[in-house]
């Protein structure tokens, strides 16, 4: 048995309840108080087949405001929950392609609204498919549930550019989760991805490079046990549990994955995701970069 095939509860996570296995999902498919939410990069994947009963939350259409470069407001969020039959007592389980990039991103956005009853399916969509489990093309309809939520609170889990500048002033810890080439500034985009318009290559001064994928097993996409995660971030980024940490990537999706690992699996209390990330910082007038 490899370490990553350890049961989730045996991996030493600070909050193991935020992660569920594909077995758990299979056993809880028909529970009315559990809502599976698929979030993908590929816009056709959900419709081509999803876990039975799952709804889709699309990162561009459903999580972002259509006109302002920002996330949903409170009313839009309540409407999103309502149309997917998610109520105050619903447990939401996110999963998706790309090793749960967009699932973690959706989890993070839900978290900004104080939605705490959320989990991620370890290994994502691909693990489910590789295990030969059932997929369905039926799009479920759920009854809207009355809900009330406070306004989105960006203060604890989201960093804006001014927050990052203040963070730099106090020599705060930063993790750049992009590829080593992006971090070094030798390329302005992910390997095999086009340039999406950053004017300069490099990283935010002082940031350490820990590519997001190091947090998962290359075999099945499941998260590494806590001891391995801890040593990864301690050794490569000099991060301790007591540190105030900002994570970033290119647009904030890969760093949501790392934010999830640090904040929820390791239980580090002060971790913020800078979703403006390199597409903002790499173009900002007057801010320093490092190569």
């Amino acid at each position: 048995m490899t370490q990553t095939s350890l049961p989730i509860e045996a991996r030493g996570y600070a909050n193991p309840s935020v992660l569920v296995s594909t077995d758990w999902v299979a056993e809880n498919l028909n529970r009315e108080d559990v809502r599976l939410v698929e979030s993908n990069e590929d816009p056709l994947l959900y419709s081509a087949g999803h876990i039975p009963g799952a709804v889709e939350v699309d990162w561009t259409r459903d999580l972002n405001d259509p006109l302002t470069r920002d996330y949903l407001n409170r009313e839009q969020f309540i409407e999103l929950l309502s149309r997917n039959g998610i109520g105050p007592d619903t447990t939401v389980v996110f999963y998706g392609d790309k090793n749960n990039w967009w699932a973690a991103y959706a989890f993070w956005v839900f978290n900004l609204f104080g939605f705490k009853n959320a989990k991620i399916m370890d290994g994502g969509r691909l693990k489910w498919v590789k295990e030969g489990r059932e997929l369905s093309r039926d799009v479920p309809n759920y009854f809207a549930k009355p809900m009330s939520f406070p306004d989105r609170d960006d203060s604890t889990d989201r960093a804006f550019r001014d927050d990052v500048l203040r963070h730099l002033d106090k020599a705060g810890k930063l993790i750049d989760v992009r590829s080593p080439e992006e971090y070094a500034g030798t390329r302005l985009h992910m390997p095999d991805y086009p340039n999406e318009g950053a004017l300069r290559g490099g990283h935010i001064p002082g940031a350490k490079n820990v590519p997001w994928a190091r947090a998962i097993s290359p075999e099945d996409g499941t998260f590494l046990p806590a001891t391995e995660l801890k040593s990864l971030y301690e050794l490569q980024a000099d991060i301790q549990a007591s540190d105030d940490v900002v994570v970033y990537c290119r647009i904030g999706e890969r760093s949501s994955h790392t934010w999830f690992a640090l904040k929820h699996l390791l239980g580090f209390p002060e971790v913020r995701n800078y979703d403006g990330s390199w597409t903002e910082w790499g173009n900002l007038v007057g801010v320093p970069i490092e190569r």
Partner: peptide
């Protein structure tokens, strides 16, 4: 064909 919402990875 697919609409403008394609991510950059998918579009590439």
């Amino acid at each position: 064909i697919f609409g403008n919402e394609l991510s950059m990875g998918k579009s590439l």
